[in-house]
Design a binder for these strands. Structure first.
Length: 483
DNA sequence: GATGTCTGCCCC
DNA sequence: ATTCTGC
DNA sequence: GCAGAATGGGCAGACATC
């Protein structure tokens, strides 16, 4: 209607995306405003969604693979083959173009890992019982779960050609779990050639920061400071990394994805010379749930995040597929890695987006009572309620509706005086501190925004505690005990 | 130059 | 990351 | 069980503003 083609809209969005530097935000706003005003109502809605990355069409990459199969064959019979191709080149756009240009058979002919091109990483399912794990998986390998960052390491002795052709050639490329290249982050991998036997290899690993003084692994919050653009070498010195290698996906032209796990481990061990930076992780073969349980308990006691369990003869499968790789974090039978759940009071809520728009509530803010020791100046901090987490998961659709209804009876116009809340967490709607919820979490961390001074990592609702009121809520000193 | 706010095919 | 839900 | 879509804490960077 408005004469703008899809291509034109695409080109204008691309232009807007590329603005940078001083005044760029202003420019982006005005250019997007101009574009939106040229569109009809319906087009404007979807262009806005494109910009926000919230198209909400109800399908994603995997559904496109189904569609490609149907387009070429009239049914979903090619999906398996497409999945395999997608694993070694996880780019639905590229795949669609190749299939339509060459046809299914030619496009899917060469299914080999290409060193330098990221492979879709294997992910873990969750299961919280050693018995269930052995039942589903049979013989397994039990390994420590490191709380670091996933790194897929590609090595080619002859070097990768740089995109800017004149630069020096690097022997190493690395990728995140989301297939983002982050080679610049790891100067310590420049010596990889000394530690690898062979000319080409692709490894899977978890990188963890190491405390220079104690030699112990650092918490995730410290490790992740290595994800940066500036000051890379300085930070690399202050927070050196150890890469715990647990898999090898290709070596010297041989794709290993469908080799059984124990076989890949054998190749892995043969490929790595002993060194301080690349460490092949421990693995323990077992078929016994009691023994598996013991390993899990031991890893937790040693301070690891938990255990990763892998089917002994399983292939390297992309994503969470079947019962191939499984993680256990919390103790068996408990919810959340924290030793206890917390009873917290609802302070306010936020309107939801997408599916949750209809509920009128997408997340809510919870807090604890600040219990100053009585010896202190009695007035200060008395009766204050401070924030410790925002909760947006763990509720069924019915519970969302139910909570909204309850909170509506408690709405107050202004934030209650006893609340202490950071600007970044200002709720859309404030409520009196009457509703108490039981919350599970994995960890208590030092927080820059939550006024309790600490926050919950991976918080989720367990249930409503109608039997409790504000006076029964977990106190700040009790929180410190749990952590 | 210091501080505040927001974003990220972010990391978990 | 965790969790819920439609298919 | 898969695939998708809701949502969490918190880091460095980029840009705006004081």
């Amino acid at each position: 209607d408005n004469g703008l083609s899809v291509k034109e809209v695409y080109e204008r969005l691309l232009l807007i995306a590329k603005y940078a530097g001083e005044g760029s935000q202003e420019k982006k706003v005005s250019e997007l405003a101009k574009l939106l005003s040229e569109l009809d109502q319906l087009s404007a809605k979807f262009v806005a969604r494109i910009v926000l990355g919230r198209l909400r069409l109800g399908f994603s990459d995997k559904t496109i693979l189904d569609a490609l199969s149907v387009a070429e064959r009239g049914d979903k019979s090619a999906r398996k083959k497409l999945d395999e191709a997608y694993q070694i080149r996880p780019d639905a756009g590229h795949l669609a173009a190749a299939v339509l240009a060459k046809g299914l058979d030619k496009a899917l002919a060469n299914l080999e890992v290409e060193v330098g091109v990221p492979v879709m990483p294997a992910l873990c399912q969750r299961l919280n019982s050693a018995v269930a794990i052995i039942e589903k998986m049979g013989t397994v390998a039990a390994e420590q779960k490191f709380d670091g960052t996933r790194v897929q390491i590609h090595f080619r002795r002859s070097g990768f050609r740089n995109q800017n052709s004149d630069g020096p050639t690097n022997q190493v490329r690395t990728f995140t779990r989301n297939l983002e290249e982050n080679s610049q982050m790891f100067p310590e991998l420049s010596r990889l050639g000394e530690w690898v036997k062979g000319d080409e290899a692709v490894f899977d690993s978890e990188a963890v920061g190491i405390d220079i003084k104690t030699g112990k692994t650092l918490p995730f919050q410290v490790t992740i400071t290595r994800k940066r653009k500036h000051g890379v070498t300085e930070t690399a010195k202050a927070v050196p990394l150890q890469f715990y290698l647990f898999d090898i996906l290709a070596k010297d032209g041989r794709t290993l994805l469908s080799e059984p796990y124990f076989e890949r481990r054998k190749v892995l061990v043969e490929t790595i010379k002993e060194n301080k930076t690349l460490v092949v992780d421990e693995t323990h073969r077992t078929t016994d749930p009691v023994e598996l349980h013991k390993w899990h308990e031991e890893f937790l006691a040693e301070g690891f995040e938990g255990a990763v369990i892998k089917k002994w003869d399983g292939p390297y499968l992309p994503g969470r597929q079947g019962w191939n790789w499984v993680k256990i974090k919390e103790k068996e039978g408990s919810t959340g890695k924290l030793s206890d759940t917390l009873d917290l009071v609802v302070m306010g809520y936020y309107r939801g987006r997408g599916k949750r728009t209809g509920f009128g509530l997408g997340a809510f803010l919870v807090g604890v009572a600040q219990d100053d020791p009585p010896s202190h100046k009695a007035t200060e901090g008395q009766g204050k309620v401070v924030t410790i987490a925002k909760i947006g998961t763990g509720l069924s659709d019915d519970q969302f509706r139910d909570l909204k209804k309850r909170l509506d009876d408690l709405v107050v116009r202004e934030m209650p005086k006893e609340y202490e809340v950071d600007k970044a967490l200002i709720a859309d709607v404030w409520v009196e501190p009457k509703v108490v919820v039981e919350i599970a979490a994995d960890e208590i961390t030092k927080s820059p925004v939550h006024t309790a001074g600490v926050a919950l990592r991976f918080p989720r609702l367990i249930k409503f505690r109608d039997d409790k009121n504000l006076s029964g809520v977990t106190t700040l000193s009790e929180v410190e005990e749990i952590s």
